[in-house]
């Protein structure tokens, strides 16, 4: 038997963090967007243990401020794309600078300097990732997906989809379906 699961990475991550922090009896407060406020000082050993525990889940404690900011940008974008049922109509640049209290120019610079990509590119990748999820897991039609993700047209969505994946959405769906039936047959 093969099960297909649908999960919310953000929620899963929060639960893991909560569990691990509680296990090590660290007083904390989970803030939004991958930030944790720790009330007491934590011993080095305890911190190392937390770091090791979290690494197992591919959760890394980021201490570098720039890295933190980049992570915050990413988290904000992901949250924005995933949390609302429908994408807000305001531009992402506006949203980001409002949320993070930095000028958009500063954010793009810092992002591009430290990653191989631009904020715009990252947004597109994330939106297409969400589109994949909606196509595969929710079995939405392209029209529904383009509405949810605020694309002006289906054609625009599928051309962006093709830019990111090199595939048309229908070819993409076909491949995933085939792959699943193949692995089901092997079981």
């Amino acid at each position: 038997m093969k099960l297909y699961i649908k999960y919310d990475g953000i929620v899963a991550c929060r639960v893991i963090l909560q569990e691990q922090l509680e296990r090590l009896e660290i007083k904390h407060k989970l803030l939004d967007l991958g930030e944790i406020e720790i009330s007491d000082s934590v011993s080095d050993e305890c911190f190392a243990e937390l770091q090791a525990a979290l690494n197992r889940y591919s959760i890394f404690i980021v201490n570098n401020e720039k890295s933190q900011l980049i992570q915050k940008i990413k988290d904000t974008i992901v949250e924005m794309i995933y949390q609302n049922d429908k994408l807000p109509a305001i531009t992402i640049s506006q949203y980001l600078s409002e949320k993070l209290n930095f000028s958009y120019g500063y954010l793009t610079n810092i992002f591009s300097e430290n990653t191989y990509s631009s904020i715009e590119n990252f947004i597109i990748i994330q939106k297409i990732e969400r589109a994949k999820k909606l196509i595969i897991e929710d079995q939405l039609t392209l029209t529904e997906v383009s509405y949810k993700l605020n694309y002006s047209s289906v054609a625009y969505l599928s051309s962006q989809f093709k830019k990111v994946t090199g595939l048309t959405p229908s070819a993409f769906k076909r491949i995933v379906d085939k792959r699943r039936s193949l692995s089901n047959n092997n079981l």
Binding site: S58, Y116, E129, G166, R179
Partner: peptide
């Protein structure tokens, strides 16, 4: 390719649906 692969590694994207044809 390196870029997009890096994105997948760094941004926790779903590997099952990771396709890129160029």
């Amino acid at each position: 390719v390196l870029n997009i692969n890096w994105q997948f590694h760094s941004s926790g994207l779903n590997r099952e649906t990771f396709f890129f044809s160029i």
